[in-house]
């Protein structure tokens, strides 16, 4: 019986291993998995009752979005997310699609913010089937808006944070989530409900 060279066995094993790893990546839908990260990595610079720092940022629609333009018209949910094409973020923004009617019923809109550049955000949102709310880029000056709110992490991406700003431009709720976990939509909707009740 002819002996199989040990190198051949090793090569076959490596190929099978690669196949297994590729299959595991497919399960994430081709998204980059950053693994477990430090839950939070910044210090808030705003608090409930403060006037929300204003910003004007480019949106994936090609327009610019200014927070203060919503004053007197809409409550605003600022949804900071760490990065495009990552698993948790790619569930968090579709969650606002699912909850759109509940959010709009509270006379609110979402502004999605990340430190990705506009082309990356555009392609990511298309890959998710689109989102109904404006998505803006805090890419340049890098992370300036996240920094103004105190949600810019050491590695240059924003926290996973939700901030509710009322029609007067005042911050009414802040939640900096564990970056590894998808925020609970029910809690956000309940907070919006309380906001309406106070007015």
């Amino acid at each position: 019986m002819r002996r199989i060279p040990p190198g051949a066995v090793l090569s076959v094993m490596m190929l099978l291993l690669l196949a297994g790893v590729c299959a595991a990546q497919t399960e994430l839908g081709g998204l980059f998995d950053p693994g477990a990260l430090k839950p939070t990595d910044s210090v808030l610079k705003v608090k409930v009752g403060d006037v929300a720092p204003d910003f004007t940022l480019p949106a994936i629609t090609g327009e610019k979005v200014t927070l203060s333009n919503f004053r007197g018209r809409k409550n605003v949910i600022l949804s900071f997310v760490p990065a495009a094409f990552t698993p948790v973020c790619s569930e968090q923004w579709p969650a606002y699609n699912l909850g759109r009617e509940l959010i709009e019923a509270q006379d609110a809109v979402v502004i999605g913010i990340s430190t990705d550049n506009t082309p990356a955000q555009f392609t990511w949102c298309r890959s998710m089937g689109g989102v109904w709310f404006p998505v803006v880029s805090d890419f340049f000056p890098h992370g300036a808006t996240a920094k103004a709110y105190g949600v810019l992490r050491g590695e240059g991406v924003s926290e996973r944070a939700e901030i509710i700003v009322d029609k007067k431009g005042v911050i009414r709720w802040i939640k900096v989530h564990d970056i590894n976990e998808r925020p609970n939509l029910e809690i956000l909707v309940n907070e919006l409900g309380r906001l309406e009740g106070k007015d």
Partner: peptide, 10 residues
């Protein structure tokens, strides 16, 4: 399924 999975929505 997952309610936030775009394939599940579609």
């Amino acid at each position: 399924f997952n309610v936030y999975c775009m394939h599940c929505m579609a």
